[in-house]
Design a protein around this nucleic acid. Sequence first.
RNA 1: GGCCGAGUGGCGGAACUGGUAGACGCGCACGACUCAAAAUCGUGUACCUUCGGGUGUGAGGGUUCGAUUCCCUCCUUGGCCACCA
Length: 810
Amino acid sequence: MVKFDPKKFEKKWQKTWHENDAYKTEETSDKPSCYVLDMFPYPSGSSMHVGHPRGYVATDVYSRFKRMNGFNVLHPMGWDAFGLPAEETAIANKEYPTVTVERNITKFKTQLQMLGLSYDWSREINTTDANYYAHTQRIFLQFFKQGLAINKTMSVNWCPELGTVLANEDIVNGKSERGGFPVFQMPMRQWVLAITKYADRLVEDLELLPEWPDKVKNAQRAWIGKSEGHQFAFPTDAGVEIPVFTTKLETLPGVTFLAIAPESELTKKLLEKAQNATAISDYIEASRQKTELDRQQLNVKTGVIIEGVNAVHPLTGSLLPIVVADYVLASYGTGAVMAVPAKDERDADMAKVLSLPIIEFAEADTKVLGEKLDAKSEKRYKIRDWVFSRQRFWGEPFPIVWVEGKENYDVIAQGPVGKWLPAQPVSYKDDSKEYFAVPVIPEYLSSMQLPVVKSYEPTGNIEGPLAGIPEWVNAFVNPETGEVANKAKDESWIAVKRETNTMPQWAGSSWYWLRFMDPHNNAEPFSKEAAKYWGAVDVYAGADHAVAHLIYARFWHKVMQDAGLVDYPEPFKRLEFLGYILASDGTKISKRKGNSRSPEEVVDEVGADAFRLYEMFIGPFEKPAPWNDNDLTGAKRFLERVWRFAETTIKSKVATSSEPAVSALQKTIAKVEADIESFKFNTAVSSLMIGLNEMQDEPVALPELKQFLKLLAPFVPHMAEELWQMTGETESIHQGPWPKYDASLIVEDNFMLPVQINGKHRFDIAVSKTATEDEVKSVLDADDSAQKYLANQTIKKIIYVPGRIVSLVI
RNA sequence: GGCCGAGUGGCGGAACUGGUAGACGCGCACGACUCAAAAUCGUGUACCUUCGGGUGUGAGGGUUCGAUUCCCUCCUUGGCCACCA
């Protein structure tokens, strides 16, 4: 007997698989395709803890299972390494971001490989690699060309601590998602992606995703927040009109005042006419100083009435006060609301604070009002256009340079750059000059690579750190060719300034699944053929990113679809969210608390296979589960039993397995394959244990043992391979095929039909699963325990479900 | 406040479209092996019991021959979103 010693064979098989390219995805294949994708990690911290591998092991089990079932499986891994997490770590370590990123990737990769995960490492990608982000820049050019990437001044979330603006999706509970810093509303000029133009499609196409959890679809609908209503304007006695948007036009008779956002342009206009301009200015300034958190969480409404200006009620002609109040959002609707305090709680709060009237009223007819007021039906969305620029160093540079003057822009437009220009030029005015955004076309993107700089820390101004580097900022464009260079090669070249903001972390992850399909393509982000062959990701597993990443990725996919790069509307067919592994005390694993062990330690103690098996057995995949060292030992103990069973079986040279053994095996096949398919790994493992329990004391021949090993292979690939070779096989067990389930081999011995009397289970009787009701009755008549209950009783009713139950009412 | 989800032994959890609640594992107890311990193997393990049986899936009610599963009310708890007019 050879002792079960995973250290002896786990490293060996990892090496062999690596040398044989065992998990390299076939480029062309007759097999059906299956794309199994993990949400790729950002290597910000220094290493993984014991909770991280859960998702990676699950997708590995699934991928191995699919490969054995004859699929050409794409199962890649890469690194989402641009953006705040990596940059903040680098700043904290006082080192260059590339150094941090490289070290963390190495560490992470070693830890993943230690687990025997079957990634095709030849497809590894890194979003900070110039070979990758050149394609992110190319895809941005598609947005630009289609008029979806625009540069505009709007009220945005400014985070002074991080020195950058943030998208709404980056704000959690009024603070920055990264670091939990305060965030302020400020009007600033920013790059914005027009996701609102896709809002309807993003809602409608959720119908195409039956394999997405409803809660994600609901969360996305809520985030997009489509509402339909009417827009019309209130006249004022100051000659300025105040446009409002309402979803309840019928409440117009109840309007007692108008409320406008402090940041709104309208407020500035009205300020000039106000008698209490100072008070209003003070209020605007006070609002500006408030953080998002304060605005949201202080439930006390504040506002100032504009004195000397009144709105006119369109139905009654009565004069309505106008209030500047920061409960009104500048960035939604018109930045002004008609307040109906009798119907709306927020308006009521405001009315009480300022002692404004609250009137009861009869609702009016929407249709009549709509015609009378010339109120147009409008759709509005909670989702904002995506603020896409960051005033940070560690991100993709925009493939954009700025040229001064329309004349110059027109000259450039004559050349090859012309076909990348949007119908509406992107421009801004600064003093008396006007600047135009000019794309750097794909052929010359190498001139837009992130430079190596002395200092990359955030500067806190809206130009970002790149603005301090003249060699980055100052450039020339050749209008004939579109080439961009730091020196003009002749007089025809036009001076330009490179864009100094960078893209957010979300950029690289908004299309990476497509790059995995064709990772070495230099000419384009990915080929149409590759995208067509693989199609949408079959299973996408990872943490719950219900709104941000999954909305951005769907948006980019649709834009790429419209650009003709992909020909299907949704990127991810099926989503599987992962529950976190908690520390043994039920709290979150945290490095600071030191309440968890390292994967290295666990692998060293019980081996990678036992670790994998334990993480699959720990509980339902989507639910959080606390780590338990005893249960880990249980997983190891099971593998030791499998090992002994296999050795005994090989030695025994039994010619034919017993009927119960064959039957047990068949049941296990059916259960394991159904459970893996539906990501119920915990019950799959449990059925493997049951299978072993039922087989280990029976005579088992080699073919049945080998089938059982195949069922184990996705979970414990090293041990399954080792035992497989011990049976005399020379090819890898992971090539399959998966055992074929044969229902006819299952024997149901001693089926006992449960008998219920008046709803209570009393005893069982031996009848066949297919017995007729009369047969059941005659068995009952002869059965002693039955007679105990039934003697001298009349059976009023009998319900018989063959193979299930018989229920008697007496 | 809104939208989801969850509450089952000492613990993690299982239970198909309503059909034997507690699979599987851990822990615990006893036994075998051992000088002894560990490891391993075997047996038992929801609770109460006068040994007939009774009670049990957060609480209370309902539908049903039958409810962890469906419906109503409530309690506890987790997640996500929260001034969007």
